[in-house]
Amino acid sequence: MAQVSMTVNGAVKSGEVEGRTLLSTFLREGLGMTGTHVGCDTSQCGACAVHVDGKLVKACTMLAMEADGAEVATIEGQANADGSLNTIQQAFQDHHGLQCGFCTPGMVMSAAALLKENPTPSETEIREHLEGNICRCTGYHNIVKAIMAASGQDVTAIAAE
């Protein structure tokens, strides 16, 4: 067992981990931050996506010890300071970009990373960016629409609802 310490959503957090403990396991079980979900074990689904030092990372693919000293951002820290939904979260609600909600934390974190790099992505760019995030409920229509809307693009021409 080893001690790790990292800044998670602005607060310093530490705990004991095994060498094999994944960052996703540390967040969920070590810190009780269960918003980061684990949907597969082959780094395919993206439900566990978080930001580590500003980069989009699948938390099931990184050892907790590798994140020692890092700045980690998770879904729990995404809302505005007053607790209201941030622009991306609000767009997901407004455009019904989620159903069961399980892939949603990863989708929101992935969308945030995209919009940071590319503030007004095209439909194709969004779809290609989301290659690493699987959603089984929405058929992606409303997720893509929500991300376009969150980037300030007019989505009224995209099929209703």
Partner: peptide
């Protein structure tokens, strides 16, 4: 708009593994 979205969008859902 779906009221359940707020908890799902903020990591506050309560799934069985949670």
């Amino acid at each position: 708009k779906r009221r359940e979205d707020v908890r799902f969008l903020t990591g506050a859902g309560n799934y069985t593994d949670d």
